[in-house]
Simulated scan of single mutants.
Amino acid sequence: MMTRIMDLDVLPSMDAVQGAGPELMAATDPAARNGAFYGPKSRTGMTGEAAEVPVYRSAKGPTLAASVWALAAATTGVDLPRV
């Protein structure tokens, strides 16, 4: 049954190039704004071209932000100065 549903191509999905679009836009577009969030531009936020999109309410907390920065520093070995 699941194979038949997936064959219909009705589940939201993007290929690797489309999926990398928001990150590339945020990193390289001269018009990208510091502190903005970039993702797929669709009503569901799961597909579509890269664009600036609203930050999810659940992602705005200082506790989550601190944990993301800590994970990034641990993963990359680079800890940016605190402002």
Results as ranks from 00 to 15, higher is better:
T63D: 06
Q18Y: 01
Y38K: 05
Y38H: 11
S58A: 14
T76M: 11
T75I: 05
E49F: 02
R43A: 13
N34A: 15
F37I: 12
T75D: 05
D79W: 02
P30A: 09
A26R: 09
L71Y: 11
L24Y: 04
A74K: 03
R33Y: 02
A51H: 04
V78H: 06
A26T: 06
A16W: 04
A72H: 05
A50T: 10
Y56D: 15
D7S: 14
A66E: 08
F37R: 10
T28F: 12
R82Y: 02
G61I: 04
D7E: 14
S58R: 10
A66I: 03
D29A: 13
L8M: 15
P81M: 05
R4E: 14
E52G: 07
V10W: 01
P54Q: 09
V78W: 05
A66P: 03
M25Q: 11
Y56N: 15
D79C: 06
V78S: 03
R57F: 11
L24V: 13
G61A: 10
S58E: 14
D29K: 01
Q18D: 14
D79Y: 03
M2D: 15
E23C: 15
T75A: 12
V53H: 04
V68I: 15
Y38V: 10
R57W: 07
V55F: 07
D7G: 15
S67Q: 13
A27C: 07
M1F: 11
E52S: 07
G77D: 10
P40W: 02
A74T: 01
V17W: 09
A70E: 13
P54I: 01
T63R: 00
R82F: 00
F37W: 10
P81K: 13
P81E: 14
V68C: 06
P62F: 00
Y38G: 12
A65G: 07
A66F: 01
M6T: 13
G45Q: 10
P12I: 15
V83T: 06
M14L: 14
L80R: 02
A70H: 07
V68R: 00
M14T: 13
T76W: 04
G48C: 09
A59I: 00
